[in-house]
Design a protein around this nucleic acid. Sequence first.
DNA 1: TGGCGGCATGTTGTTGAACAATCTTGCTAT
DNA 2: ATAGCAAGATTGTTCAACAACATGCCGCCA
Lengths: 227, 227
Amino acid sequence: MAQPAVGSVVETLRQRILDGAMAPGDRLDEVRLGGELEVSRNTLREAFRVLEHEHVIEHRPHRGVFVRRLTAREAREVYAMRRLVEPGALREAAVRRLAAQQLPTAEQGPFERAWERAVSEVVRAVGQGQSGVRAGDFGAVGTANGRFHLAVAALSGNDVIVRTVRQLLTEMRLLFLVADSARDVHARYVEDNRRIADLIVAGELVRASVAMEDYLFRAERHLLSDC
Amino acid sequence: MAQPAVGSVVETLRQRILDGAMAPGDRLDEVRLGGELEVSRNTLREAFRVLEHEHVIEHRPHRGVFVRRLTAREAREVYAMRRLVEPGALREAAVRRLAAQQLPTAEQGPFERAWERAVSEVVRAVGQGQSGVRAGDFGAVGTANGRFHLAVAALSGNDVIVRTVRQLLTEMRLLFLVADSARDVHARYVEDNRRIADLIVAGELVRASVAMEDYLFRAERHLLSDC
DNA sequence: TGGCGGCATGTTGTTGAACAATCTTGCTAT
DNA sequence: ATAGCAAGATTGTTCAACAACATGCCGCCA
C-alpha cells in the first residue's frame, strides 16, 4: 500500500479508457475489473465515483458504469467553454505580467523566473508536437497538444482555471476516441500551436489570446465536420 | 433504498457543510458520521470521494477528510474564473439568440418558449432576492443569488458552462462561511442583479454581459476587503 | 529541565463474504 | 408473436476483520 489503492485504480482506469483500450459505451464489470486489478469491489466503486465526476464514465443505477459516449452537442459545448477559458487565461496572464512590473524590484526576480519556467513548458510542448509529427506518432502529437493547452492555461497562475482546462482536455480525449479525424486533427494544428507559442515568447499575450480563440473556432469546425 | 444511499448522503453532507453546520477545518469522522447517518463506512467513503471532487471537503490520506478551508488566493482565483465564464455565458446567449432568428420559422416557436422560461427563472431569482432583503432573511438572499447566477449561466444553453458555474457557486458558499461580510454582501448586490435582469429581459445581452463583469469585479473587491 | 525515542491507541485503508434490491434474459402459455 | 413470469446475474449496501499509518503519551537520557 505504498500509494493508496483508489488513486492508482483511478489513474489506471482513466488511462485505459482515454487510450482507447475500452470503447465508449462499454460496461465496466465490478467483479471482473476487481479481479483484474486485484482490488475489492468497494475500492473499485470508490474509484468509479471519482471517474464519474470527471465525466469519463457514466453511472446508470443498478445497471453499471459505462465508458462515456459524447454527443456532437457536448462536443460543441466543450469547445464553447474552451473559447471562454483558454483565451481568458491568456488575458489573465497579460494583466498578471503588467501587475508584476509594478511590484518592488525585489519581488520581480522570483516572478520572472516562474514566468520563464511556465513559458518554457509551453515551448517544450510545441517541440514535442513537432517531433511527433515528424515521427508520424499521432498518439504523441495528441499528448503534446494536451500539454500545450494545459501549459498555456498555467500562464494565468490560476489553479481554478488550470483544473477546469484539465477537465475539458480529458473530455476532448473522449471525443477524439470516436472522431474519424482524430488521427490528423492534432497534427494539422501543431503549426497553430507554434504560432501562439511565438506570440507568448514575444510577450504579445493579447494577440496570443486572439490567435487561440481563432484556433479553437477552426478546430471545432474541423472536428464537427465528421461526427 | 428508494434512492441509492450514496446520493442522499452526498446531498445531506453538502447541505450541512454549506449551511455552516460544520466549520471549515472540521474533521468528518467515518464511524461517527456513519452511525449518525445510518450508513456503512464504505457507503460514506463513496460519498466522500464525490464531495472531495466537488472541493467541498479535503482528503488528507490516513488523516481523514476535513471541511475545506479556502484561502484568499483561491477566492481571487474563483472570481477571476467567474469573470471569464459568466459574462461569456451571456455572450453565448446573445449569439444563440441571433442564430435562432435565422432558423426556419417552424423551429422558432419552441426556441422562443424555452428562452422565455429561462429568462423567467432569472427574473424569479431576482424577486426572491428582493423579498429576502425585505424580510431580513440573509440566508434566503444568498440562496436566491446562487439561483440568479445559475439561471444566467443557463441562458447560454450550454450544460458544460452550467455545471462549471454550479461548481464555482458551491465554492463561493464555502467562501462566505468565513467572510465577515457574508451577511450583507449578497443583499448589497440584489440591485445589481435586478439591473442585469432588466437588460436580459430587454434582450440587451451584450450589455448584460458587461454589467455582469463589472458586478463581479466590485463583489470581489468587497469580499476580499475583509478576509 | 528539556528534548527524544518508542510504544499504546485510535483512525483510516482495504478486503471478503454475505444478502437485499434490481435488472436482464429466456421460457412458457396463450 | 407477445405478455408475463421465473431464473440468473449484477449492483447496492452492510458488516466484521485486519493491516497501515498518525498521534500523543510516557519514561529515558542528557
